[in-house]
Every structure is written in C-alpha cells, then in structure tokens.
Design a protein around this nucleic acid. Structure first.
Lengths: 219, 219
DNA sequence: TGCAAGTTTGCACAGAGTGCAAGAATGTAA
DNA sequence: TTACATTCTTGCACTCTGTGCAAACTTGCA
C-alpha cells in the first residue's frame, strides 16, 4: 500500500497531489491541443507549480504523460506460478499471472482513460511506455528462469541456455500483452483487460497449433 | 538499387556521402565519450558541416545514431510466402522470409557494427529503433493478412478478426526477431543473423509444444 | 553561358532540461 | 511554543535541441 493517499505525513500527501496535478494538467492540455502544441511552461502553470518544479517530478514532458511502469507482480501469485510444475507450459502460465497484475492499476480512472487515448494517438508515447516496461520485463525474465529451473533440471545446468529460453518466453508474452492491449483499446470485446489478454493467449495457441513441424522435446 | 553510390548525378552522390559522414562522426564520438557527452555541434564539426545542415539530414541526434528502418521485403519472396498454402503455418513461414530480408543490410560494415554495439549499450536508442520499425511492422501485417485470406477463406469474411490474427502473428514474430537479435549480439553462436533467427523460431516451437491444451482448429 | 532547382549556411528564436543557492514548508523533539 | 533539521519549491543563469527564413552557393541542363 505505498500509494495510499490517506496515510503518511502531510509532506507525502502533498507530493502525491502535486504529481497527480501535473499529470492531469499535462494530459488535459495535450488532449485539447496536441502533443507539440503544449509546453512545459503551460503545463506547470495549469498545475500551479513553477516550471522548475515540473522537472523535479518528471524528467521530461513525455514522462508526465505516459505514467509509471506497472507495479511489480503479486508475490503469492509469482510463487504459485514458479511451482506450478512442468504439466503446464511456462509460457501459458504467465497469462493469468499478468492478467491478475493488471487488475490493480493505480491512479485515477479518468487519468488512466485519457492516458490510454493518448498512447493510442501518439506512437512516440507508446514507444516510451514500452521502454518504461524494461524493468518489468527484466523482472519477469528472472521469474521465468526460476520456473524453468524447477521444471527442467537438465536445462538449469546451462545458465546461458536457461536465460535464452526465459528471454524468449518473456518477449513472446510481451508481444501477446501488446496485442491484447491494442485490441482491447480498439473497442474489441470485453470490458476487462484481463479477459482480453486471455483471449490473445488462446489465439496464440491456435496459431501455433497449425502446421506444427514434427520434433520432440529435447533436453 | 536506390542507394547505389556509383550511379545517379553528382548531387545524389554528395548527399549520400554527407549523410554517411554525419553518421560516422556521430557513432565515433558517442563510442568515445558516451551518448550525452556529445553535442550536435561536435558531431557537425567533425563531419565538416554546419549544425544547421545536420538537421537537414537528421531530425535529432538519436536518429543519426540508430539508422534507417530496414528495407522493405523482397517482392518475390513475399509472393512465395503468401501463396505457400495452409500446409505451413503463417507464423513459421515468416522466419525464412525475414531471415532473407536481413541479409541485404545497407551501409558500411564498420558503421553497422558500431551501431549494434551502441544499440546494445543504450536501451533508449534501442527503443527508438523499435519505434522506427513501426512502418515495417505495419507492412508485415498486410502481408500476413494476404496470406491468411488465402489460407482461411472463412476467416477472410470477418475483416476485424482477420486483422487481429495477422497482428498477433506479426507481433510474435517481432518478439522472435528481437530475441534472435540480442542473442546474436551477445556473442551467441552463428555468424549470420539469419541463422540465429531460425534458431529462435525453432525454440519457439519447442516452447509452444509443451503442455499444449486440447483444442481443435475452429473456423 | 545562363537559368532553374537543390543544398548549405548563418542568424534569430522558442523550448527542453540542469545546477545552484535562497527561501518556504514540514517534521520533531524539548 | 520554540528551535533546528529535513525536505520541497522557486528563480536564475546557462547549455543544448530543433526550426523558420533568407542569402549565398553548387549542380543540372539547355
């Protein structure tokens, strides 16, 4: 509960309020006028802080718009995933895990919605967001590694091979997340992102199931 | 043959030379001193052009570093892919197609190598590069759509579903390409990128083949 | 030779982003 | 309440990025 706006001292509450205020101002202005018709000065003015303060909170105009990287995963869910056993594929198991992680999205709803619209509208922002996911991505790789170490003891002896495999799984999962995200944003179907995500995972299964080349699982 | 430096007028040759010179200067300086210890002024000076001219060629310091988006795909190879028939999966078929496309990388070898080093060193640049792939990505989606239209007439009647599927395939393929690229760059195995790419495709098959859920191809 | 079209450059300017130090607000403990 | 430490805000000066414009220069072509 690190973002609980009721707890902690006045300082912390004010800081959060300022941050939110800047975010809101930035999003609103860009929605009104377009990304490059808005200056940091204007954003700061609307948020009632000095331009210098803006840069105390955000490194750039863009980072005020894209928001933070997603929260880390739920400890318990991660444990469950790691010890699920080799019966379920390491890739598919990530579907529910991530779906659950996205339920607990922080911040104000209106802000989130505006952000989504802008991410769709400005690919540059989307790219930035992807970049912000880097840390999350790396974290996920280590989680997958842990899982594989359990499922495939033989593989675990070759550190490099283990990491390579974990990286491939992670990258593919991110591709699926990205697919689900844009599909969901394009008004496709379900209300909850988690549901759409599972759909995309299922679609991937279908795609990979056609024309499977003959080969056996090698150790 | 649009970049053939022997043909065309003096104008065109000079323009290409200047562009290359700026690229080389930028890469060399950043390699020496680090990304943010280098200014456009310095790059321009080393390349013997005015700073203003720098911006006639590149929109930013970064774009001089990351290089152009990859060439479009070979027409013939695309045709072959599209009409390969439903026997081979639309996803796997993209492996050889892209592998072939990467063989014909433009520019000087030394420049390419330096670029790779820097892309590895600076994730921001890598993100930019990914963003530059956007056009290529979109092109690929339409190619996959064409293929699916042939393979699955039933699906072709639902434009939205067709696009959704094509996008998922494309995104996953890009994930595989990214995986192959970094693996290759980390000194892993083969000399040719194309070879490494096929390895990654194969690894994906293995991953997806474990714990396959029961389901049938639905129309 | 001379004109059209394309290229380079300098100049002026707006905006992004940072270091620094003064001053305001908050936390804390007597 | 007071006094003192910590943290936050702000203004200021400065460097760097990126763009519009017009003058000067180069190349293409008849």
């Amino acid at each position: 509960m690190s973002l609980d706006a009721g707890t902690r001292g006045l300082r912390e509450r004010k800081r959060l309020a300022t941050r939110r205020s800047i975010e809101r101002s930035a999003l609103a202005l860009v929605a009104e006028r377009g990304l490059d018709k808005v200056t940091v000065d204007e954003i700061s003015h609307r948020a009632d802080v000095s331009p210098r303060t803006f840069f105390n909170y955000f490194a750039s105009k863009e980072s005020a718009l894209v928001g933070d990287a997603p929260e880390l995963l739920d400890e318990a869910a991660v444990e469950e995933y790691i010890s699920a056993g080799p019966g379920e594929s390491a890739l598919r198991g990530l579907g529910p895990l991530i779906a659950r992680a996205t339920e607990s999205d922080s911040g104000e709803i209106e802000t989130q919605q505006l952000r989504r619209t802008l991410l769709k509208q400005y690919p540059e922002l989307f790219a930035r967001r992807m970049f912000a996911m880097k840390t999350f991505e790396e974290h996920l790789v280590t989680v997958v590694e842990a899982r594989l170490r359990r499922d495939e003891p033989a593989l675990a002896e070759d550190e490099a091979a283990l990491t390579t495999k974990a990286r491939l799984i992670t990258l593919v999962v991110f591709a699926v997340v990205r697919h689900a995200w844009t599909s969901w944003n394009d008004g496709d179907n379900p209300r909850l992102f988690g549901e759409r995500l599972l759909q995309s995972f299922h679609q991937l299964d279908e795609i990979m199931a056609t024309g499977v080349p003959l080969h056996r699982a090698t150790a």
